[in-house]
Amino acid sequence: MKKLFAAASVLALGATGAIAQELNIYNWGNYTNPKLIEKFEAETGIDVTITDYDSNDTALAKVKAGGHGFDIVVPSATYVPIWVSEGLLEETRPDQMENFSNMDPVWIDVPWDEGRHYTVPWQWGTTGIAVNTKYYDGDIDTSAIFMDPPEELKGKINVVPEMGDVMGLAIMYYGGEPCTNDKEILKQVRDGLVEAKKSWLGMDYGNIEKFAKEDVWAGVNWNGSTFRMRLANENIAYGYPKEGYVVWMDSVAVLKDAQNMEEAKTFQNFIMKPENAALISEFARYANGIKGSEEFMPEDMKTAREINIPEELKDKGTFLPTCDPDTQALYTRIWTDLQK
């Protein structure tokens, strides 16, 4: 099977006449398992280069500016429709690829890529609350941890500066729907965030070691990242806000102006294999969308609260829709006000 796969890709490449086989992946920082890349390189002979970004907007801005040299990008669900409508993605038809049968049916007819004509799941997760329980032992399943922080945590809170996620959490905290343009709710959101910020320490990415070394005690964070924090510091726990939390999925897409189109498609097919998808999860500690990958995953992932949403909180999660440009402009203004 493996041989056949390698042979097929060699044939495909031979046909395009490429000699040096390369693949340039543009992905979130600290998100790609080196072992996955080693395995891909060993099986296909393609040389992979990874470049990091820290937000969807950075990635979109850079690729739109052109001259980037990337083949693959991994945008979040909310952003996929923008990438498609801006004509940046190649319709690679993953649904016709060999390993597509492994895809969990739940993730096939998704609103951002109906029938999976462009993208393959990378990982999915939630945006919720991380707390160091050594310093606070109250209820952590609430956005109040960062919107109305308990006395013990004041001055030690970090909020990831991902505008969509934070706005989504804050809007749901005040009972609104994500992407709302209801001014009443947005005024509450703005005033609430500005007031809450006085109790925050930072708005920064790359928090795993800052939580582990207890520079930061609580904050808005992603589930897999919190899982990795807990592995480094056992006091850290993950909470699912009952007012509503954000569910997201990042998907692998191929850029229209990719220099290495065939290699990029090979990669999309490669990661739909259960044992390869499991490697993705093993590193970044998020779930993927591939059936049968569980059996290749580390034992501790099967019971972890960060991955397995408690039954009573399951229906509190929401996928963020793509907001229209006017609403987005409104949110940017609130965001600038927050950081002034």
Partner: peptide, 22 residues
């Protein structure tokens, strides 16, 4: 070092080219 909580002028400019889309 500042934790990104308060923008500086350089960061404000960056915001417009990134998330601000302006």
């Amino acid at each position: 070092l500042g934790g990104g909580k308060n923008l500086m002028f350089g960061n404000l400019i960056e915001l417009q080219f990134g998330a601000g889309r302006n």
